[in-house]
Amino acid sequence: MSETINDIQNEIIEEFSMLDSDMEMTIEYVMELGQQLPEMAEALKNEDNIVKGCQSKVWLNAETKDGKMYLEADSNTAITKGLVSILVRILNGHTPQEILNADLYFVDKIGLNRFIGTQRSNGLGAMMKQIKIYGLAYSAKAE
């Protein structure tokens, strides 16, 4: 239960390394991961939680319990949903401070950096930024 953010990132890097940098297999796997993302309550898919992308909609909600941050997310596109599910898997259940300090190096290592570019400034980059903003807000609250 006490896996660190980096432990989970390393697991994901390991999983993706089996895909041999094949773009189709990579996308297929990202979509599979998205399908495993727990369903987000419809009420949370509101304007406040939207990370507006150029082409796809992403909703991200963060709450804290016992000093840890818990994330819920969804998207109207299958690939983006997969991408945000990876972020949720890595960052869910860590403290706001851990999330703020996280170096998300997995993106470069699994060939997902292209997704940041293809969705302009609003892809993975915007989602990571949004989670860090939640982290910042909650860590400030905790003080």
Partner: peptide
């Protein structure tokens, strides 16, 4: 039932460059 962004990314993976949006 399929978002144009997903279609565009899949087509790109198969070597086909189209525009979506």
């Amino acid at each position: 039932g399929i978002h144009h962004f997903d279609l565009g990314m899949w087509l790109d993976a198969k070597g086909v460059a189209v525009r979506t949006g």
